[in-house]
Design a protein around this nucleic acid. Structure first.
Length: 473
DNA sequence: ATGTCC
């Protein structure tokens, strides 16, 4: 893969073969993936062949190998001229994302034994791990379809949360064009018992402290200040999203020949946005996105209850944003506004100050961009930057550097937990093996990733948060 | 990420 360095944080992959646009990689030289074990830059080039793709096929600084598309990939297709949607451009964990809640409490006012009681309470109130229960026991499949249609809005209507939770959630808590009828019976069955559950892998609920503020006015608009206690929740659409992806990849794979589309990798299966198969996938994807938002809403309500009981304080939503989603958005292409299908997979939307889609109280500061770090390392709050490249997108996290298998060989979960506790981070895990797979050494350095994202002009730092307690999926 | 293969 031939990379041309354009600046400190920008590399180009020139058009070659079937590529319709160039590839652009936003990273420092040190962050570029190792081609020996990671084919993500080939995937950037593959994505550039998709019908209707405009601008470039982009990679964020945390890019790594994924299913078809790289994780940390952004690509937009022009809807009116046969542009496609690809489930591989969203990923299996549809609408995986992050929610940040801020407490009216400072670190210095959260001393022992309250901190231990808080972590014990959060550990007990947060269902996690594979197939192990949920906060909300849904009545039946009919009620699940209400969740798929209404997302966090339906949860709040049912008494799980407050208006602020919707005002500060992407899309006001629910995507409008969800089509619950596009979720298969199996997807519905898998989803019934998981609304309000973390899952596993890199998903977590953390108690964090605002360690540093870079942009005071933006932080104030977001409701953040130095020393403040926060709760960050990182999770997705569980088995339901996975099943929806599986079902629709199969349908689209079989339909592709009818559209005359050929792709260099069958994992890039795609259909025109305007086709019945494309519309079916987008409707199902939106339903899964609503499920993920309801999931984070219920976990937040459970955390809020524990927080109130232990500390007597409130938790206010700062923002909830997905990093695995395709959205129909309007962007300028060659000076003209176009309706685009923007795929962000392991990439976060980052609307700049003044964007009309922002709620009024965030209009001046821009959209809060939530970047979860790794267990035991920092997380970030960023905001968008006017005129930024990549259709208002930035990184989504540290990005894995070692496989789960290799990570688990470097340390035992028990040893890792002891190490983190010695560093002042309380850990409530689900399994020793799962903990070991998530050791910080298995990830790139999130500080370096965020430096590169800002250096590349994708976003602006607002605040840095450090964990003091981790509930791990 | 995921009832890590219906």
């Amino acid at each position: 893969m031939k990379l041309v360095q354009e600046s400190d944080y920008r590399f180009r992959i020139d058009r070659d073969g079937e590529m319709r646009v160039p590839g652009v990689v936003f990273a420092s030289r040190a962050l570029l993936p190792d081609p020996a074990g990671d084919k993500s830059l080939e995937q950037v080039a593959n994505v550039a062949t998709l019908p209707g793709v405009v601008g470039a096929s982009y990679a964020m600084p945390d890019v790594h190998w994924g299913y078809g598309f790289p994780i940390g990939g952004v690509a937009a297709t022009d809807v009116a001229t046969g542009g496609v949607v690809s489930p591989g451009g969203v990923g299996f964990d549809i609408s995986c994302g992050v929610r940040l809640l801020a407490a009216d409490l400072d670190r210095q006012d959260l001393a022992e034994p309250a901190l231990r009681a808080l972590m014990d309470g959060l550990g007990a109130a947060t269902p996690r791990g594979m197939n192990r229960g949920a906060v909300w026991a849904l009545r039946d499949a009919r009620q699940l379809r209400e969740v798929l249609a209404g997302g966090a809005r339906y949860a709040v209507q049912q008494g799980h949360g407050v208006q602020r939770d919707l005002d500060r959630c992407e899309d006001g808590g629910a995507v409008a064009d969800a089509d619950p009828g596009q979720a298969s019976e199996r997807a519905v069955q898998r989803g019934l018992g998981q609304v309000g559950s973390l899952g596993s892998g890199n998903h977590f609920l953390e108690v964090q402290v605002v360690d540093r503020v870079y942009d005071e006015p933006a932080a104030e608009a977001f409701g953040l200040r130095a020393g403040q206690v926060c709760v960050m929740i990182h999770c997705g659409s569980r088995g339901l999203g996975h099943q929806i992806c599986t079902d629709h990849v199969r349908v689209i794979e079989r339909a592709m020949h009818r559209f005359g589309i050929s792709v260099p990798d069958r994992q890039l299966a795609c259909a025109p946005v305007s086709s019945p198969e494309g519309q079916a996938y987008l409707g199902a994807m939106a339903a899964a996105a609503n499920y993920a938002r309801a999931n984070r809403q219920l976990l937040a309500v459970a955390a809020r209850r524990v927080f109130g009981r232990v500390t007597g304080r409130e938790l206010a939503l700062v923002y909830d944003i997905s990093h695995n989603l395709a959205k129909i958005e309007t962007h300028e292409v060659a000076g003209l506004p176009r309706r685009l299908c923007v795929h962000r997979k392991g990439a976060t939307r980052a609307l700049p100050p003044g964007h009309p889609d922002l709620p009024a109280d965030l209009r001046g500061a821009g959209q809060p961009v939530l970047i979860p770090g790794t267990m035991g390392t920092a997380s970030y709050v960023l905001t968008g930057r006017p005129g930024a490249p990549a259709f208002a997108s930035t990184c989504h996290g540290a990005g894995r550097a070692l496989s789960r298998h290799r990570a688990a060989k470097t340390v035992h979960g028990k040893e890792l937990r002891e190490r983190l506790e010695a560093e002042g981070i309380m850990v409530r895990g689900a399994s020793w093996r799962g903990l070991a797979e998530e050791t910080p050494e298995a990830y790139k350095d999130v500080d370096t990733v965020v430096d590169a994202a800002q250096g590349a002009g994708l976003c602006v730092r607002v605040a840095r948060l450090v964990p003091i307690g981790v509930v791990k999926g």
